[in-house]
Design a binder for these strands. Structure first.
Lengths: 114, 114
DNA sequence: GTGATACTTAAGTGGCGCCTTCACTATGTC
DNA sequence: GACATAGTGAAGGCGCCACTTAAGTATCAC
């Protein structure tokens, strides 16, 4: 996942309305009106959020007749999830190096504990 | 991870400066000045970002003398990662149900009722 | 003590983000 | 054709957010 994309994904999810829309869509496809229903905002505002979600790559939409059906794109979610995994492994590797260092230098505190 | 917390985490990561600070800290602890070094903004701005990161739970800081040392809090990263995992399983469960439904009613090799 | 370093806090500014309304198009129903 | 439904697009308001500068505090070195 590109830097620009992860940027947009986090920006998209930073807004509570958009995050709830993603949660809704992860349970299955929905129309624009379906998505709008739980919110006390104008349909226009919902469409703007939807456009943002589509630009971020989190959501794909398809218009048939006058109805626009929205679905999540699991790949985008997976990409964001992997960003966290990368941070975690970076952190874990550092701990490993630290452990190696302590083992090599014969850290007394480490030897003393069991 | 609470709703309020995931909110703050995504808001924190939506800003490129803060995201880079998190990436830096996932490679090991740093002082405020260390964190500020790559950025062409005032130290004051960096501290404001840092306060946000601390409020979001992503980062912990500790002041010794006049130096403030910053570390990531892996639990917060893990919590955010799990938000994505939950969406994914929600999506996968739906696919499973769909498969079951097709097996029962739509599959040419269906058995039993109709 | 003096001076330097490492932040810290407060106040102010500019821009962007979320929302609204209103006018509009396109499609489906009768 | 007439009406309803589903969504679109533009223009504007208002608040928040990232940033600045400037002044201040606390610690360290001498």
């Amino acid at each position: 996942m590109s830097t620009a994309s992860i940027e947009l994904v986090f920006q998209a999810l930073a807004d509570p309305t958009r995050r709830l829309m993603v949660e809704r869509l992860s349970r299955g496809p929905a129309t624009v009106s379906d998505l709008a229903e739980p919110f006390a905002i104008s349909l226009s505002a919902v469409v703007q959020h939807l456009n943002f979600l589509e630009a971020s790559g989190l959501v794909h939409t398809q218009k048939v007749g006058r109805v626009r059906t929205c679905r999540i794109k699991p790949a985008a979610l997976r990409g964001a999830e992997q960003w966290f995994a990368a941070r975690r492994t970076s952190w874990e590797r550092r701990l490993d190096r630290l452990a190696d260092y302590l083992a090599e230098t014969g850290d007394p505190a480490r030897k003393g504990n069991a």
